[in-house]
Amino acid sequence: MNECYLGIDIGSISTKGVIIDNDNNIIASLYSWTEGNPIEAVKKLIKNLKKQLPNNYQIKGIGTTGSARKLIGLMLDANIVKNEITAHSVGTLNFYPDVRTILEIGGQDSKIIIINNGIITDYSMNTLCAAGTGAFLSSQAKRLGIDIEEFGEMAYKSNNPVKIAARCTVFAESDLVHKAQIGYKIDDIVSGLCKSIVLNYLNNVGKGKKIIGPIVFQGGVSKNIGVVKYFKEILNQEIIVDPNSHLMGAIGIAILARKNKIGKVYDLNIKDIKFEINGEECERCSNCCEILKIYKNDELVDAWGSKCGREFK
């Protein structure tokens, strides 16, 4: 029986899962949409991954990362639950040991990680605004009636990107509308949008950071060749985009699950497990904490969110 490890990255927009073996080779992988329901998304993801997994493998470790990491970690009884920054770095370092800068643009957040000699030395994440993330791109694509998969290609073709004020998503959108109304070609507008994402990213997240090559670009937006093109142009450096760039967080957490295995074997029979979350407002003091109660098969397994550390069991 061969050992393998499952890593799941549950983001705001997409859910990524990979299964790796002891040598970090990918045995199974899937990129799917979260659609606002992480529990269902993970159930579907695991069903699919199980089909891909050959019979002679057993899962010896599970790791979760991404914004729903804690919830899914509890649901799957994961042996490691880690933040995205660490997971992404571990994943990337596995493929590119001499990487110096990781650019990552996801659905809701974007981050930059600076690496020196294989260890993280600095990082930053967007804080206030989502201008310059995947969610903004996809909402604009929808508004312009373009398929998000074609978006990058359209942007790549154009050589005349429109200037767009992208400090803030709302103003960027009004600027986009304006540019369309005065008759710019749609290719140029799309291209300008991709460029504005890059500029916004470098001005906010990358502010004050020294970007040194080799640079690896990942996250969902790295699949957009238009954005990659402008990163190359503006940074004037080579940008590496791995074929698995969208899975890097999941790969990283799978590697961490392997390193932290506890000897348990997971069977992944979660299809029939009833997992329910109840949100309620605690009324014991005027903090009015939002308490999340998590039930597994109608049994309370955990509760989060109280500021005072109130016990629920």
């Binding site: 880690k82 933040n83 294989g118 260890i119 600095d122 990082y123």
Partner: peptide, 21 residues
């Protein structure tokens, strides 16, 4: 609050990695 927790966790990972190194 979640954003703060994510960043602190990453910060901890980072300084621990550096120390080990």
């Amino acid at each position: 609050e979640t954003g703060i927790k994510t960043r602190i966790e990453a910060f901890y990972d980072m300084i621990e990695m550096r120390k080990k190194n």
